[in-house]
Design a protein around this nucleic acid. Structure first.
Lengths: 238, 238
DNA sequence: CGCTATTTTGACCACGTTCAACCGCTGTGG
DNA sequence: CCACAGCGGTTGAACGTGGTCAAAATAGCG
């Protein structure tokens, strides 16, 4: 193994390092961070951890995408978030002393880093700034979740779907001649689970948005052509 | 002022002290905690802080109840939580560097403690266990919020209302001969805003539950008579 | 090429919202 | 003391969104 490939697996070389919670660690602490870390390979559709499982530690995505979802008693699923490189996984269950509150499943073949509970907590205790950043992130996620409660209560499925497409565009959109290609594949069912609706309704909305020229469908890809038009759907009245 | 009344305002004498985030502070630290604290009186319907306001610090309820809600662009409100003595307020906005993400309004005449940002953060930095407990609480709230997203997506208004009544019973129910009296007054409108529905639908559900003998209405009070029956409504199929 | 899974379309229906009117209570002013 | 306004709560009727079920079309794959 070349020294170069070794370096690439270090957190400091992660593309999202500077935006993450470890960005202000000293050299020495970074060495410790690497020491506690292990890197795991997950194939598409593979489960990273399952709702109800005991919490072993905390994950951070190096490459790939991971969907976070909860399951109801009768098997229906609600996708809560699509995690991307740099996202922490399982951090909200690390402190509550409860089993995982949701499931994490790889959407792509992914490389995901792992710290066990003791290792991560020791880093946290030695580095107040990391703890502070983690609190900031938990707070932001909490606010986002409550925002979603509000939206789901008062917005139509059409509005929620438009908003979801715009979110995907911001997170995974790559500018191409046709418009923004969403560099993520979700089945109609998954799209429905993300906005709290049904497959059939999503299909109808896609064909409606397509007919209106807001989006385009090509093979398995969705292109967002008119983000501004979609944005107006977000507002009241639709 | 008698020494006794002075003591009563100290955190260590708060009924919820042992369950709160400050429970493991040393004597010295508790003195510092008191030093940074101020106590404020809020009348019913008075705003503690407003969505969009700059964050000045953090609150903790000593007595009374406070509703936490968000407002949509067109003025509709969604009640996210009913905070009770011992609850922190504004802790999720303390770290995000953003304005308050929601409004806090007193439901009763309430006594609410306050620490400004620097004061609270200095306590946090000197006491890692407090930080850890705060993280635990943020995590728990995050999980609860995502749970709510799931529920709102797949449960009927009837199920959500039954669940909400049971939550009120657990939090504010006092056992009386008639059943559990909910020691909290919420208008039909507020009940609707809590479950993401409308006044009229809530009225119909109340009369339905009343007719079925699950609850009783007397003056402004709601009594939960058959919590178990309400619980079955929570399950799938209603 | 046949088999399965996913997507799409269509018809139907129910839940819950909306709008409107009405009720009952309380406080206020003549 | 009564009349009336105002407010929260209640009831009724009509409508529409979006979910359900069934079936057809399409795509994916051995």
């Amino acid at each position: 193994m070349s020294p170069c490939s070794q370096k690439k697996s270090e957190c400091r070389h992660c593309p999202s390092f500077s935006a993450g919670i470890f960005s202000e660690l000293s050299e020495d602490e970074l060495v410790l961070l690497e020491g506690h870390k292990s890197i795991h390979e997950f194939k598409r559709k593979q489960i990273v951890f399952l709702e109800g499982d005991d919490v072993q530690g905390i994950f951070c995505i190096q490459s790939g995408k991971v969907k976070i979802y909860k399951t109801t008693g009768d098997g229906k699923q609600q996708i809560l978030n699509i995690a991307q490189p740099g996202s922490l996984l399982g951090h909200s269950s690390l402190f509550t002393q409860c089993p995982h509150a949701f499931t994490a499943e790889a959407l792509d073949d992914s490389q995901i880093c792992f710290w066990n509970q003791e290792g991560f907590l020791s880093i946290l205790q030695r580095n107040p700034p990391v703890a502070l950043k983690l609190m900031t992130q938990l707070s932001a996620e909490l606010n986002r979740a409550e925002e979603k409660v509000l939206e789901n209560a008062y917005q139509s499925v059409r509005q929620r779907f438009a908003k979801f497409l715009l979110m995907l565009k911001d997170k995974f959109g790559v500018s191409e001649s046709q418009g923004y290609r969403l560099d993520i594949y979700l089945s109609r069912q998954e799209l429905a689970q993300a906005i709290g609706s049904t497959e059939e309704t999503v299909v109808r909305l896609i064909s409606e948005f397509h007919k209106d020229g807001f989006i385009n469908i090509d093979k398995k890809n969705i292109f967002v052509i008119e983000p501004d038009k979609l944005l107006t759907y977000t507002k009241t009245g639709y």
